[in-house]
């Protein structure tokens, strides 16, 4: 079988590579709480969403999780499951926000939605599968606060990047 990669395939591959690089750098940063990290790879997902649409963004987001899992050696581990659960949840929310609502958000809105959905998905999975202890629920608001703040930061970065891309020749 001979597959001919399209221009879009190449684009997705390049953008995924960029997101994976960011994900790997971030994985080396220490984190005060498991599950809390800036999630700067989200910036790439949002930029791709705004420039190329939901399909490309979903590909980049899910491939990023897969490739990063393979490279970090967490593939199919609980960490990977949480990461994938979060990514699936945020991609699903972005689908709802772009396909069913009128496009009323800027990069900021999508970034915050994606960050919150990622955290909620990850948390729900952790709570139901790994640690079904009511004590864990006390962490939820703290983690969502972190997600909101990092979502805002990612939104600003994504908008800055989009502004730069808008000036650059296509």
């Amino acid at each position: 079988m001979h597959l001919i990669p399209t221009r879009e395939d190449h684009r997705i591959a390049w953008l995924t590579a960029l997101a994976v690089a960011i994900h790997l750098i971030e994985a080396t940063l220490p984190s005060p709480l498991p599950g809390v990290k800036p999630g700067l790879a989200n910036v790439i997902t949002i930029v791709v969403l705004m420039r190329f649409g939901w399909n490309s963004a979903a590909w980049v987001s899910l491939l990023r999780v897969l490739v990063s899992g393979l490279l970090l050696g967490t593939f199919l581990s609980p960490t990977f499951a949480l990461s994938l659960g979060g990514a699936l949840c945020s991609v699903a929310v972005l689908w709802l926000a772009t396909r069913t609502l009128r496009p009323c958000f800027s990069a900021m809105g999508y970034s915050v939605l994606a960050a919150l959905a990622h955290m909620l998905g990850q948390f729900t999975l952790a709570y139901t599968l790994f640690i079904p202890h009511p004590g864990l629920l006390h962490l939820l608001p703290v983690m969502l606060t972190a997600a909101l703040l990092f979502g805002v930061v990612s939104g600003i970065l994504a908008q800055t990047m989009l502004n730069g891309l808008a000036k650059a020749p296509a």
Binding site: P103, F105, V152
Partner: peptide
């Protein structure tokens, strides 16, 4: 499918979402 037009600043929906 891209979301056009590209918005360059916060929309009202963003602000409502944040609140």
């Amino acid at each position: 499918m891209s979301i056009s037009p590209l918005r360059s600043s916060l929309t009202r929906a963003d602000v409502i979402l944040l609140f």
